[in-house]
Every structure is written in C-alpha cells, then in structure tokens.
Design a binder for these strands. Structure first.
Length: 191
DNA sequence: AGCACGATCTGA
DNA sequence: CAGATCGTGCTA
C-alpha cells in the first residue's frame, strides 16, 4: 500500500483539502477492509478562521488539532453524529480538513449493513461516512500515517479543472468573510 | 451548576 | 421543517 505520510498533511490546509480529493480513505476493522474515494472536503484554517473549532483556542475537545499533522480529529456533535477530520499544517497550528463524502469502493456490503442504505447515498455526508466506516471517538487522535485502522492512500489523479469550490456547510455563526469563503471542495460530476 | 447550541441526518 | 440527543464551552 501507499499510505500518505506526514509531509502530505504538513502543508497549507486549502492545498491539502484539494489534494485529498480522489484519494482512497481506508478503514480496517479486524480482517474487514472498508474503503472509499474522497469526493468532498472542507478546510478549517486555524485560529483566524471563525468557523474553526480552534478559533477560541485550545480546549479538551479540539486538543488533537494542536498535535502534529496526520492525526485524525474525530468529534461528536448534534447529540448523535461523529465527524472525521485530518489535522494539517505544522504542529501547533490548529488546522484540519473535514472529510464530507466518499464514494464506496471496498467492503460495500459491510457498509450497507451498518448504514441500511445503498449506492451513492451510503456515505455522502460527514456523519454518514463515519457510520459506514465505523468511525467513532475511539479514533480521535489516531495517527493516520501509521498504516493501520485508518489511513489514506493515493488512488486517482484529480485535475484542478474538475474541482468545485463552494462555501462551507453549517457554519452560519461564523464571520461573513469565513462564512462566504470558498473552502469546501468537491469533484465535479457529470462533466 | 446550569444552559444554549452544534462542521447533521432522517422522515413527514 | 422539526426532532433526535448529548458533549462541550461559556457564564455565574
């Protein structure tokens, strides 16, 4: 396998958010391998970004964002959902990329069992993909460069022209400059 | 110690 | 469009 290393994550968050598109997100649970191609991400750009969890400094919840790049930041929200992020930039600069959607590739039957949904609807949302891949708080702080349990691999080369940038979702509380920033990235389809 | 609300999803 | 449902962070 071709696991993305720490250097990959240790770069500008907006760059990493785009670079993760077309990559393969792999989750291994015992002998079972679940995987999908990342097709949608969002960048959360540190203290300056009023939509970022680290905006008001370090707390127990967001502590992982202050760790070295290449760690998974998994948190719980809305009383029932988990979100998966990858920590980016240099250690101490609390930035991360939210993984919002994947196209299932491996272990689809297993994912369907977990989700009770089929096809593209299986993992087309940040909480849905966490359910499909069995990701919960136990993976918060996991080193995704270690090559076990959860990691990302090279998979498909995505042309810059086929990347769509749009405003991030669910952050209406943020300052306008951050609310309107085109920091959500997805692969254009049907074109 | 109490409280308001959230980087969401589902089903009506 | 409301409800689910609870951890977190802010205020006192």
């Amino acid at each position: 396998m071709d696991v993305l290393d720490r250097k990959f994550y240790e770069r500008d968050t907006l760059y990493v958010a785009r670079a993760l598109l077309g990559k393969k997100l792999v989750r291994k649970i015992g002998r079972v391998t679940l995987a999908g191609m990342i097709v949608e991400t969002e960048a959360y750009c540190g203290r300056e970004d009023s939509a970022c969890h680290a905006h008001r400094g370090q707390t127990a919840r967001n502590a992982v964002m202050f760790k070295a790049p290449g760690h998974a930041y998994v948190y719980f929200t809305y009383g029932l959902h988990y979100m998966l992020n990858m920590v980016t930039e240099k250690e101490g600069n609390p930035c991360a990329v939210l993984i919002r959607a994947i196209v299932p590739l491996d272990g689809i039957k297993e994912m369907e069992k977990r989700r009770k949904l089929k096809g593209t609807r299986l993992a087309d949302g940040p909480a849905k993909l966490c359910q499909a891949l069995g990701i919960d708080k136990s993976l918060n702080g996991w080193d995704v460069t270690s090559g076990s349990k959860l990691w990302v691999e090279d998979f498909k080369k995505i042309n810059a022209k086929s990347i769509l940038a749009s405003p991030r979702i669910g952050i209406n509380y943020a300052k306008a400059e951050h609310r309107n920033a085109l920091w959500r990235f997805s692969i254009k389809t049907g074109g």
